[in-house]
Design a binder for these strands. Sequence first.
DNA 1: TTGTAAGCGTTATCAG
DNA 2: CTGATAACGCTTACAA
Lengths: 334, 334
Amino acid sequence: MKPTIYDVAKEANVSIATVSKVLNNTGRISEKTKNKVLDIMKNLEYQPSSVATALTGKKTFTIGVLVPDIANPFFAEVARALENNARELGYSIILCSTDYQLEREHDYLDLLIKKQVDGIIIATEPKDVKKLRNLHDQNVPCVLFSVDHLALDSHVVTTDDIRGGYLAGRYLCQKGHRTFAVITEPQRASGRLRVEGFKKALADEGVNPADVQVIEAKSKIEEAKLAANQIFQMEKRPTAVFATTDLIAAVFINAARKAGVSVPNDISIIGFDNTIHAEISDPGLTTIAQPIAKLASYTMEQLLDSIEDPGMPTNRIMLAPTLVERESVKDLSS
Amino acid sequence: MKPTIYDVAKEANVSIATVSKVLNNTGRISEKTKNKVLDIMKNLEYQPSSVATALTGKKTFTIGVLVPDIANPFFAEVARALENNARELGYSIILCSTDYQLEREHDYLDLLIKKQVDGIIIATEPKDVKKLRNLHDQNVPCVLFSVDHLALDSHVVTTDDIRGGYLAGRYLCQKGHRTFAVITEPQRASGRLRVEGFKKALADEGVNPADVQVIEAKSKIEEAKLAANQIFQMEKRPTAVFATTDLIAAVFINAARKAGVSVPNDISIIGFDNTIHAEISDPGLTTIAQPIAKLASYTMEQLLDSIEDPGMPTNRIMLAPTLVERESVKDLSS
DNA sequence: TTGTAAGCGTTATCAG
DNA sequence: CTGATAACGCTTACAA
């Protein structure tokens, strides 16, 4: 059996209270006994049980992270960033990948509550407001990551999607483009916001947003391929395309090659997220980068703050995306 | 505050023992009180604290998963598969991404022990045998996933890498190829095994394995690019290349295009892992698929079994990979 | 400076 | 069938 605090106490001829105190550096204890206890702990390879600690101390130092799909490169990056932050702060992460299924999300939420996690980070599109309200009522601190929902008053840390779309639109216009198509995920609020920002940029640059052809596709290979081909067959083919995810854009590039359309010579494309797809595709994909590391650290900060002070006002933090220039957009202006 | 078993008991005018019994369906209790208690639990939205349960019952229903990098598509898939299995079996997963750093691995291992996880799945290359022995001594069930180490006698579930390499080699030979290069990760044991199998296949097909040019590269974009270009500049350029990861192969394909070398017309390539890179690349990458879902379910099974019976003999399970044919290999035989 | 004892939310063993 | 009560490993007043 693993040694307990009692084993250490017995071996050191002190009480468990004393051991506890040297463990937590609380109270006052003589250097001598302190060292003795420390020594013995080392010898026995004593590790305090955080289960027991949690039962008394009320904290588990564990937080739950809900993502729709950990195999999606964006969320994988997110998970890595969050986990990194958590580790540095002494927390560990229970990973919950809902596979876009509401039921799993519910199950996980219940599970996390049972496990007494100190907080929850939600990166799945909030469909069931009730359930989330529940969390709030149960005093489980919770922050929404890169998703938003006005009906909820929980903390939110997100990329400024409108601005991201705007950046994409403005960039394309500045490169001399005037006719556009957009491929977007209709279910995701972020997708809609990105398109909104995109159109706003066009308007500001004097292009009629109504002329933009919007095609809907989930961020899956097959759907993206279909959407791409739809664009190649248009009679008035646009000179530039805005895809609201890198996966869609990467598939677009390959589909273009297959259709005998050259990127960026015949058609330009800009993506969103700056995942590995953008880096690996050929030509390299110009894209809007979400500041994942920053998002993650702000998220953890919000979460920990509201663990400390559950009554704190709910902030909505919106971080600016940036444009990463590669080779998928042609300059038509010169 | 969240309701406890005492709240339920008081409300129902029974003892906590009774509540506990209806909760676990143990002992005998009248339908009537049972229903009463059940009702009240529902009303109060009572969730038993699994922290308290863990303290008595000795099980946390949590397992730790160590991966080198969750943002690597292969490990992301692995995490998803493991997590899926775990969820179905009532376990949750603490995700630990070590970023290939030994120190982090140590820290995580200590953490997991403190958290009293019921078991640990290790998918990182075992560098420090001592630490793992420790786990064994501390009676923490543990299974190695897709890595192996003869010095360890823990459970192992892995792909038959030698066979995978063999499949790749045989396939290329059957397609009429006779001159080869290999790009492999030298640090990973799996990389070495894959190459070994590859050479074995060549030998069986009458090709001298000594003629194979082996180039080393980590599975990173930059290194893969370098390795690819090295091959394009060879005076005796091979007709086929075996890359021990899909990422390397995907980068190779793009580098080829940039170098004016056509895949598969001028040179053929075969990858390993069947990640999203293989699917998305153009041309589609012929590759060796690891049976991730199966690996995951066997792993969980081994782990749970050895949680039940810590003394069980340590199995080494090796699952067969399969070849997934796409368009990156040219048939030279006809 | 150190020790005693209550309490955290369960489970499990006995009695009743 | 139901209820006291000890035990799990630790923290934290409060005593000594």
